[in-house]
Amino acid sequence: MANRNVNSYFWEDEKVTNFTPEDRYFMLFLLTNPNSNLLGIYQITLKKYHFTLGTLMILLSICLKDLRNTELLSIQKRPARSYIKVPKHMVLQRVESL
């Protein structure tokens, strides 16, 4: 399992400061959950988010819509599966100096 850290820039990002607490929680989950890769692309279902976060499905749908409207994530729907992409994933990850 990968160790994920969130850059403190996350809390200063103009779009994030306007999020609801639920949107922030969901975005933190997207940045740190074990289904993410370093590019910020996820293949996961709403049911899995619901089970992991313990959040109502309707609230997850609202969070997805809110985050899509801020362009902090996009959803690619394919016939067999859907993907979520977080374009700023690398910016919001903390980079350790060597």
Rank of each mutant, 00 (worst) to 15 (best):
M1G: 15
A2F: 11
R4D: 07
N5D: 12
V6C: 04
V6R: 01
W11Q: 14
D13M: 08
E14K: 07
N18W: 04
F19M: 12
F19Y: 14
F19T: 04
P21T: 08
F26G: 01
M27R: 02
L30P: 00
L30V: 08
L31M: 07
L31K: 00
T32D: 06
N33I: 03
N33W: 02
P34R: 05
N37G: 05
L38Y: 04
I41P: 01
Y42V: 03
Y42G: 01
Q43H: 09
I44W: 02
I44L: 10
T45P: 06
K47H: 10
K48W: 08
K48Q: 12
H50G: 04
L53Y: 06
T55F: 06
T55V: 15
T55M: 11
T55C: 07
M57S: 09
S61D: 06
I62T: 11
I62F: 04
C63H: 00
L64T: 03
K65A: 13
D66Y: 09
R68C: 14
N69S: 13
N69W: 05
T70I: 11
E71C: 07
L72I: 13
L72D: 00
L73K: 02
L73W: 02
Q76H: 09
Q76F: 07
Q76S: 12
Q76C: 09
P79G: 06
A80G: 05
R81M: 09
S82L: 02
Y83M: 14
I84L: 13
I84R: 02
I84M: 10
K85W: 04
V86T: 08
V86K: 00
V86D: 00
K88N: 08
H89F: 15
M90D: 12
M90R: 09
V91M: 14
R94S: 13
E96I: 11
E96R: 09
E96T: 10
E96D: 11
S97P: 02
S97E: 14
L98D: 14
L98I: 13
